[in-house]
Design a protein around this nucleic acid. Structure first.
Lengths: 230, 230
DNA sequence: CGACCATTTGATATGGATCAAGCGATGTGG
DNA sequence: CCACATCGCTTGATCCATATCAAATGGTCG
């Protein structure tokens, strides 16, 4: 039942820990050209909150470096991660005036912060901007639809799918550096850390992957992973 | 593992069965004014396919009467229902050129069919149209995000949540007429029919609901349902 | 009435959660 | 430099919610 992190409702904002060398992830930046000209870059420390659920959605965001997680917490503390946003990804895009998820930096981040009202104002006059807004929202929609398909699968299928998804988002596609903890992965996949860990071990034993360090995964047999993805 | 319908990959298109009296559901229509002027109403028989996954997305659709389900089928036949669209709801909205889900009529339907290309062309010149497109996509996004939160819950929470959701979408809020079968509900909630049935029986035994006929549910104790919604 | 289909109910199996312990890396203070 | 605490992860043992398998019930239509 309770397969997610239990979050203490009273202590959400954690102290920002010391700095760490940022991960060298560089990805093809989807062209959000005219919109991102309106933004200012801003640093966030590891575990810093970028915005909270139900806060007014005054800005939208684009990851420059680092990784961001969005999440929701149920009444009783179960946490569901919406997505891991890597450099180039846009998040915090809302049509209503409140954020539907919370957002936090997983590693230290640089994030482009763009004022929502000015984008919307510009969209009212420039067709391409309004089209970009629409496309970003639709990209997000597709992603969430895929996430639903993930959540109906078995543990093995979820983990295999997750690895393939992360690999597809990384330039050097055979070896991936995970910016997030096992707990984050578990909360994204709707599993427990134990199950994630066991499944990774099993994939390693069947030599579908190698795990040189816990944050680094080598895809040895992509066909096998694809096959078990469901 | 296999908690969804197993769909035989070779026999998706079913013969359209006989006609049935349409359900008298009438709901507040969100104003999609200028867009829906461009559409033509079209009837679909029970279980008729409206479009298939990966088919070119030439049209978008608005339910006038009846109910529509969208769904995806995994390689091995597991089915996941994306949503049940009731009168007033827009579906089939895509930014890419292919549909990401399939759509079928659950009961006999009247559906407004609107040519995608003309809407997009109009959006290029009329701000309000492009805003409507964006808002419809964002509405869908919210919905899918909520669906994810549903899928991490227990069986009881999912069923209770489903009933509350359906009640919120119906005018006479205490009694709801379900247009879909137990199997459809199960595939929406990521459960089996047996679990859905047992859970409904349990809710009835604890007098949270009454089930005069299998398609009709009376909410007796909404507070209890809300409480167990998670 | 009898066939058919949807739904409910019952008995059992199992995948993943839970509870608990061990392990390796990193960091701290003496 | 080394004991020692801490943290993230792995591994092991057991439990439980929900799936699976199977049968009974009930409504619909010829």
């Amino acid at each position: 039942m309770l397969n997610q992190t239990m979050v203490n409702p009273g202590s959400m904002r954690q102290p920002a820990p010391r700095f760490r060398a940022p991960l060298p992830i560089v990805r093809p930046q989807p062209s959000t050209n005219s919109i991102e000209l309106m933004g200012a870059p801003m640093p966030f420390a590891r575990n810093a909150e970028i915005y909270g659920e139900n806060e007014p959605a005054e800005y939208l965001y684009k990851v420059i470096s680092g990784t961001v997680r969005t999440y929701k917490v149920l009444n009783d503390g179960r946490r569901q991660i919406g997505f891991f946003y890597l450099p180039g990804d846009v998040f915090g895009l809302e049509v209503g005036d409140k954020h539907s998820f919370s957002a936090e930096a997983i590693a230290d981040c640089k994030v482009l912060v763009i004022k929502r009202s000015s984008v919307i104002a510009l969209a009212a006059r420039q067709t391409d901007v309004s089209r970009q807004l629409w496309e970003m929202t639709a990209t997000e929609l597709r992603r969430v639809q895929d996430h639903i398909m993930l959540l109906i699968k078995t543990a093995q299928e979820r983990v295999a799918g997750f690895l393939l998804e992360m690999a597809a988002r990384t330039p050097g596609c055979t070896e991936i550096e995970l910016p997030m903890s096992r707990q984050d992965i578990a909360d994204y996949l709707g599993l427990t850390i134990e199950t994630v860990s066991r499944t990774l071990t099993h994939l390693e034993n069947t030599s579908a992957i190698a795990v040189p360090t816990s944050r680094r995964i080598v895809l040895r047999n992509r066909a096998a992973l694809t096959r078990m993805n469901g």
